[in-house]
Design a protein around this nucleic acid. Structure first.
Lengths: 347, 347
DNA sequence: TTGTAGGCGTTATCAA
DNA sequence: TTGATAACGCCTACAA
């Protein structure tokens, strides 16, 4: 049997199509009696409004795009999606995830976006845009909210964590524990589209200098290519540790860009029969589940809540209101666990 | 400025709307010259087809729903999403994730689904359906493919891993390593909507019996409630371990329902100064990243590939073809790492 | 509060 | 290969 349309319902309920439309969308100006009649008719005909037809007629799609950088199945991205979904779904909006891995895909995304014109707003996560892209954003013609984007330019609203402040507190911790030489280890940072974590690298440099570390007391070690498979992560980490331990006077305080990456480095250090915090201190960033598994000291952030907040801003923008706070920076807080402690040599 | 419509392009290119439509969708029967003219006109007007209008006219939405059980931000679910997205996106389909946490939400989902009628197909992950739900599936009127669903009833196609075979190989491993008493530890399994992992519980029982373990040599320990926060997982695991160690003659071979859960149990065991494989053997299930971090022996599966396969089946169904294999069961293979070894007491 | 009627931007059928 | 034209199913002034 063909699907019932709004006129079938109208006929069944003995009212006009317009009234059915109003009743079913919960609009005001419909008498309770009429509404009941309509709802009952719709129910018995197993009728529901067609989203496409509504969209075409109203111009509202009830969909919001979520653009994330890198794979969807990382702890951060998946949590953001969860958070966005949580607040959008009850409001009747679909969340449509898209992800891009490199600059080329990003450009294509923006080129094709109007073609799909199937969204009322877009949330963009963890991209470091150049000015060309900022212009693209403005040309979109829909609310754009940024999540963990280094700059707020081009966004109607944004939310992110305060990477710099968090890194600073981490550096302070290492210093107060007596670590004289400290290192920052991080994954490969692509040139064509920066993933946002580059902020942490520069923040570490700055924070260390401010904390009184000299250039010789700071060691930055980054992977020189992107690991594609999980197995490669161990290999990358082994290379990092080799470089770390071959420093003349190796650092005893180590910060990692993310928990995942830090976990791999930590594992390799243990393989070298070094123990934390006996021989060194190590801390991650994110408070992902792996940090809990390893009792890794870390900097806590909650990407689900970031997603929630971003979605709330979208909703406000869509209602034509200003979000409570247009550009928001939330702190990431230090979580002390078992992998940090007094520096081995004493002070 | 208002957005250009297909007639603007038609006018600019000096052809009819129908021709523009054909040309832009790459349909055959358009002369190269005309196509070029149209494409150029579209380009200069910055025109792209409206998805909603296309949908309304054609009946095809170019969207597929992905219904998952439990939160979106678990390793498994996020990977499935990634896998589905990977094959659907290049074909022009949007992937729309939905997740439900309990039976009530599931019922609502099916009740509201036609209301949204905004999908051409649906992929359903990790649900154990009763017959009432099977009927719902058939009534959907669109291709339904199952992913890791215990039964194939009601699905047009399905794919999943062979939990039973995998569990059997795990049990065999423990037996050949000389473990006389073995345990299966698992998280709380809700009654209202089974998450699919219950299969593993029963599979363990069966496999153990077949491998010659007597009833007294098998210990099943499940959490008695659902942990909501990450912190609670440790508490749950502590309870599990307490029960495990308080067995008269405690088991030395342990299998866990998932890597995540097993990791928590393993952590608690280490906290009790027990070491694997010296004092016991432990293995997880999934080959999630945490198992690599901990060098945990596990049973490997690749949910990204499961997602790929499910999406390919959807595509085939949508083309009106039969999928290569309608109902597919792929093996999960044993990955030996550092946490399993000869039973402590010898044989 | 309810009804009428035009329009939203395509696709698809049928001719030409 | 191309062009008219009738759907597609709903929303929204506007009128009653």
């Amino acid at each position: 049997m063909a699907r019932a349309t709004i006129s079938d319902v109208a006929a069944a309920a003995g009212v006009s199509q317009a009234t059915v439309s109003r009743a079913l969308r919960g609009s005001a100006n419909v008498s309770p009696a009429t509404r009941a009649k309509v709802e009952q008719a719709a129910e018995s005909l197993n009728f529901t409004l067609s989203k496409s037809a509504s969209t075409l007629a109203s111009g509202r799609t009830m969909r919001v795009l979520l653009l994330v950088s890198g794979p969807l199945n990382t702890w951060f991205n998946a949590s953001v999606l969860q958070g966005v979904y949580d607040v959008l779904a009850p409001e009747g909006y679909d969340t449509i995830p898209s992800f891009v891995m490199n600059r080329e895909q990003l450009d294509r995304f923006f080129r094709d976006l109007p073609r799909d014109r199937n969204a009322d707003a877009i949330i963009i996560t963890s991209f470091e845009f150049d000015t060309a892209l900022h212009d693209q954003l403005s040309a979109l013609g829909m609310p754009v909210v940024g999540l963990n984007s280094p700059s707020t330019a081009g966004f109607d609203a944004s939310i992110g964590i305060d990477n710099a402040a968090a890194i600073t507190s981490g550096v302070q911790l290492l210093r107060s524990l007596g670590h004289r030489r400290i290192a920052f280890v991080h994954d490969y940072i692509p040139h064509d589209m920066v993933y946002g974590t580059s902020t942490r690298v520069t923040a570490f440099r700055t924070a260390a200098a401010q904390a009184g570390y000299g250039d010789d007391d700071i060691v930055m070690i980054g992977a020189d290519h992107h690991d594609t498979t999980p197995a490669m992560l161990d290999v990358t980490a082994a290379g990092i540790v080799a470089r770390l331990l071959s420093c003349e006077q190796h650092p005893t305080g180590i910060m990692g860009e993310t928990d995942e990456f830090t976990a791999a480095v930590y594992k390799e250090l243990r393989r070298q029969h070094l123990a934390a915090p006996r021989d060194f201190s190590i801390m991650g960033f994110d408070d992902a589940s792996v940090s809990r598994t390893l009792d890794l000291t870390t900097l806590h952030q909650n990407p689900v809540e970031l997603g929630n907040a971003a979605a709330r801003k979208v909703l406000a923008l869509l209602r034509g209101e200003a979000p409570e706070r247009t550009h928001e920076l939330v702190p990431a807080t230090l979580v002390l666990r078992e992998t940090t402690g007094r520096a081995p040599n004493g002070r």
